[in-house]
């Protein structure tokens, strides 16, 4: 059963890629397909992160979903990594000097890089072995970084959009806030009076 939930979650990762292929084949990706794909991958990295964070509150009713959480987190990482690889390859030609200039000068890239640097340890420590090695409380503490990652990813998004076109990144940030609020309420329930 566990395996199936996990497999289903991985298959979910294929849905956006399938959609991208269909769109490319039937309607094309517009006048600037590279930009389209880079943005598409960034969008889905953020969306999988949010989906991943939706799992915990759902566990009350659907405890079987638990294994999907790790997979969705890893999907976020995979989409983010492809997002950055394409950017590096097609926008910066793997020119590390140019990349460094970008990171220093363009603040939305600085933020994106920070987000990615924080995603890496979470992806690495996603295995059961690492949970054991760090001990559950320590592992949990480390993985709280996900909230910072989420908000900074929204910031990265908001910083690259045109002047005041903040609706979409704000929507995602609001969604994150709601999820975070639910965590605090859940804590209160477990530890009344605290």
């Amino acid at each position: 059963m566990t395996v199936n939930v996990r497999k289903a979650a991985w298959l979910l990762g294929l849905v956006p890629l399938g959609w991208l292929a269909v769109k490319a084949g039937l309607w094309g990706l517009g006048a600037n397909p590279i930009e389209f794909i880079i943005r598409f991958l960034g969008d889905w990295a953020l969306r999988f992160l949010l989906l991943c964070l939706c799992v915990t509150p759902l566990l009350r009713w659907l405890p079987r979903l638990a294994p999907a959480r790790r997979t969705l987190g890893l999907l976020c990482f995979c989409f983010a990594a492809s997002h950055i690889l394409l950017y590096l390859g097609l926008e910066r030609f793997f020119d590390l000097e140019e990349l460094w200039k970008d990171i220093v000068k363009r603040r939305y890239i600085t933020v994106g890089m920070l987000v990615f640097l924080m995603l890496v340890p979470l992806a690495v420590t996603s295995t059961n072995r690492w949970v054991k090695r760090l001990g559950f409380p320590g592992w949990k503490k480390l993985h709280r970084l996900v909230w910072l990652i989420g908000f900074l990813a929204c910031l990265h998004f908001a910083m690259m959009v045109k002047f005041y076109a903040y609706a979409e990144p704000l929507f995602y940030a609001g969604f994150l806030l709601v999820l975070l609020g639910m965590r605090f309420r859940a804590k209160d329930r477990i530890m009344p009076g605290h």
Binding site: N32, L90, E91, F93, R107, M159
Partner: peptide
């Protein structure tokens, strides 16, 4: 002279892949 959000050194000619 770079723009804060875009390097101006290269450009993508629409219809081409590499800049």
């Amino acid at each position: 002279v770079d723009h804060p959000r875009w390097s101006q050194k290269k450009e993508r000619r629409i219809g081409e892949i590499l800049k």
